[in-house]
Design a protein around this nucleic acid. Structure first.
Length: 91
DNA sequence: CTTCTGACA
DNA sequence: TGTCAGGA
């Protein structure tokens, strides 16, 4: 398996390549950030740096969008899923 | 690359 | 409402 499965962060991408990996446009990635779905790191010049973890997040966002959720719903579901998996992995 | 604005399904 | 396109 090569790619993004897990492993916290391995690569950092610009918004264009991140959009390609997410299967959408760069404008949508900024819209997701504006809605608080993710918070990519910013380089010194102010450009977004998307970690592999962020790319995984983008894939999950696309999945939830296909499921019929809107961005507001996704903004609530993402933290809950994250917390749930964290609590489950805790024991 | 960034932001904002407008239009469309 | 989310996506896309153009302009500054």
């Amino acid at each position: 398996m090569a790619g993004i499965e897990h492993d916290p962060d391995r690569g950092v991408y610009g918004i264009s390549v991140a959009a390609e990996l997410a299967g959408t446009g760069v404008q949508n990635l900024r819209a997701y950030e504006a809605r608080g779905l993710l918070l990519p790191d910013r380089s010194t010049g102010g450009t977004r740096r998307y970690s592999t973890n962020d790319v995984v997040m983008l894939r999950r966002i696309g999945d939830l969008l296909e499921a019929g959720l809107n961005l507001a719903g996704i903004a609530m579901v993402i933290p809950l899923q994250d917390e749930n998996s964290r609590l489950r992995a805790q024991e």
